[in-house]
Simulated scan of single mutants.
Amino acid sequence: MTMLTFKIYRNDNEESATGFDLGDVEFSFDGKIVSSRGHPQLSHMIYVSLVDLIDGLLQLKGGKKRYEYVGADSSFNLHFNKNKSGVDILHEKRKYGPISLEKLLEAVDSGIDSFLADPRNELSTDSSIYDDFNSSRKALKNSLS
């Protein structure tokens, strides 16, 4: 089975995060990296995109077979296809995986936890995306327990 790590980068250097900050995501599959990082045209609204990513992956857990992640306000995309051997991730005609759905969810959860360990990446309660982001995070954590 494939080893997976997930990282998030916020491109805005401001001390406090807003719900619409641009950033990048990076998946590493046994050392093979799929990332929007280093390509300014692929950076996307990171918090909005994370909500979509979590919700889409949880739909796979709920029985859906396919999910397409498209970074908000970007052309960066990944296709997640669930099958008997796990989840395959496709990017630019390359296939990564399979990885178990549980390991994929754990990697995303761990990546978000690492990202939020930096206090500058925490959303303030008055952010327009705060409730959606934290609701999705809670649903992800609940799916893992």
Rank of each mutant, 00 (worst) to 15 (best):
M3A: 12
L4C: 04
T5W: 01
I8P: 03
Y9M: 03
N11R: 14
N11A: 13
D12M: 08
S16E: 14
A17H: 04
G19S: 06
G19I: 04
F20C: 02
D30S: 11
D30V: 02
D30H: 06
D30E: 08
G31T: 06
R37W: 02
R37K: 14
G38T: 06
Q41C: 02
Q41H: 12
H44S: 13
M45W: 09
I46H: 08
V48E: 15
V48P: 00
L53A: 04
D55G: 01
L58V: 07
L58D: 10
L58P: 08
L60H: 10
L60T: 03
K61P: 01
K64C: 04
R66Q: 13
Y67G: 05
V70W: 00
V70S: 01
G71I: 01
G71V: 03
S75A: 07
S75M: 04
L78W: 01
H79Y: 05
N81M: 07
N83H: 15
N83P: 00
K84L: 08
G86T: 08
G86K: 07
L90M: 10
E92P: 00
E92I: 01
I99N: 01
S100D: 09
S100K: 11
L101E: 09
L101D: 10
E102D: 12
L104M: 10
L105M: 07
A107W: 05
A107G: 06
D109F: 12
G111W: 03
F115Y: 15
L116V: 01
R120I: 02
R120Y: 02
N121V: 10
S124E: 13
S124I: 05
T125S: 15
S127E: 10
F133K: 10
N134Q: 05
S135D: 13
K141I: 07
L144C: 08
S145D: 12
S145R: 14
